[in-house]
C-alpha cells in the first residue's frame, strides 16, 4: 500500500506512516479487549473457591505467593511509567490501563489467599509493603515504547510459565483455592503476552531492522521486574526456581524461543542484530570514531 500523498513530502509520509501504525495498534487493542470481555473476566471475591481454603500452606508455597505480591506491589509505578513510554499510541495506552486493572486482581487475590489461609498476618503484609514502598520506586529498564513492548512479551511469557508451574504444585499439594487463583492469573498473563506479540508483529512490518535492533537490546539487558527492589529477591527467586523447576534451559525453551517463533523472528536474526550493536559500540568507543 502506497502512503505517498502528492505535495506532502517526507513529513507528510512520516505522518501517514504514524497514523497507520496508530490505527493498527488500536486494532490490536480492540481485539485483545473484546476477547478479554468475552472469555477472561473473573472476580477475585466471587470466582475463587474461598470455602475450600486450607490452613496448612507450606512455607515455600506461601513465599512464592508473597513474592508475586511483592513484585506486583510496584504496579502503580509500572502503570504510570508504562503510560509515559507508550505515548502517543492510543491502543497501547489503553492496553496499559487495562493491563493495570488485570494485574491488580492478581496481587489482590494472592494477598487474600495469604491472609485467609493464615500463612501471613495483616501485620506481616503491611510490614512487607512498608519495606517495598518506602524510598523505593520502579523505573523502566528500557526507554522506548517499542523496547518496553518487546520486554513485556518476554517478561509476561516468563511469568506465565512461572504461574503454570506454581499452579501444578498447588494442585499436587491439594490446595485447590490457590490452584484456581494461579489458573486465572496464568490465563491473563498469556493473553498479555499475545497482545505484545501482536504489536511486535506490526512493528516488525513497519520497521524490521529497527525492531530487531531493539529485540537484541532487550535480550541483552533482560531482567525480571523489581529484581533490585524486592527484599531478599535472590533467595526468593532461588526458592521459586527450585519449586517450579525453572532453570536456564526452561527460559530459552519455554519463554524466549516460543516468543521468537510467534513473532516470526529467527535466532540468527537476533544474533546478527546483537553483533551490529556490538560493532556500533566498538566504533563509538574507538579513538578514531
Amino acid at each position: 500500500m502506497s502512503t505517498r500523498v502528492e505535495g506532502r513530502g517526507a513529513e507528510g509520509e512520516r505522518d501517514l506512516a504514524d497514523t497507520r501504525l496508530s490505527l493498527r495498534l488500536y486494532e490490536e487493542y480492540k481485539t485483545f479487549f473484546a476477547r478479554a470481555e468475552r472469555e477472561r473476566r473473573w472476580n477475585p471475591f466471587d470466582d475463587v473457591p474461598w470455602d475450600q481454603i486450607r490452613k496448612d500452606v507450606p512455607e515455600d508455597l506461601a513465599l512464592c505467593a508473597e513474592t508475586f505480591c511483592a513484585v506486583e506491589a510496584y504496579l502503580p509505578d509500572y502503570v504510570s511509567e508504562g503510560l509515559a513510554v507508550v505515548r502517543p499510541y492510543m491502543g497501547q495506552l489503553w492496553f496499559q490501563a487495562n493491563w493495570g486493572y488485570e494485574e491488580s486482581k492478581h496481587a489482590l487475590s494472592l494477598q487474600e489467599f495469604l491472609l485467609r489461609s493464615g500463612a501471613r498476618t495483616d501485620e506481616q503484609m503491611i510490614d512487607l509493603q512498608h519495606r517495598l514502598w518506602v524510598g523505593k520506586k520502579w523505573t523502566p529498564l528500557f526507554r522506548t515504547g517499542r523496547q518496553m513492548t518487546i520486554y513485556g512479551a518476554i517478561q509476561e511469557q516468563a511469568t506465565f510459565v512461572f504461574y503454570c508451574r506454581q499452579r501444578e504444585r498447588a494442585k499436587a499439594l491439594g490446595h485447590e483455592t490457590l490452584r484456581v487463583i494461579y489458573d486465572f492469573i496464568a490465563r491473563d498473563e498469556i493473553a498479555h503476552t499475545h497482545f505484545y506479540e501482536g504489536v511486535i508483529r506490526v512493528l516488525l512490518e513497519e520497521d524490521r531492522e529497527g525492531t530487531l535492533a531493539d529485540f537484541a537490546l532487550v535480550s541483552r539487558d533482560f531482567k525480571m521486574p523489581a529484581f533490585d527492589l524486592v527484599p531478599d529477591y535472590d533467595q526468593r527467586v532461588m526458592v521459586m526456581r527450585d519449586l517450579a523447576n525453572m532453570d536456564r534451559d526452561v527460559f530459552l525453551q519455554k519463554v524466549y524461543f516460543p516468543v521468537l517463533k510467534r513473532v516470526g523472528v529467527t535466532r540468527a536474526e537476533i544474533v546478527s542484530a546483537m553483533r551490529k550493536a556490538r560493532d556500533a559500540e566498538q566504533g563509538e568507543s574507538s579513538p578514531a570514531a
Binding site: R220, R248, V271
Partner: peptide, 12 residues
C-alpha cells in the same frame, strides 16, 4: 541463557 545464545550464534 541469553548470553549463551549470543555466544553460540557467534560461533555458528
Amino acid at each position: 541463557s541469553l548470553g549463551m545464545m549470543e555466544i553460540v550464534g557467534e560461533l555458528e
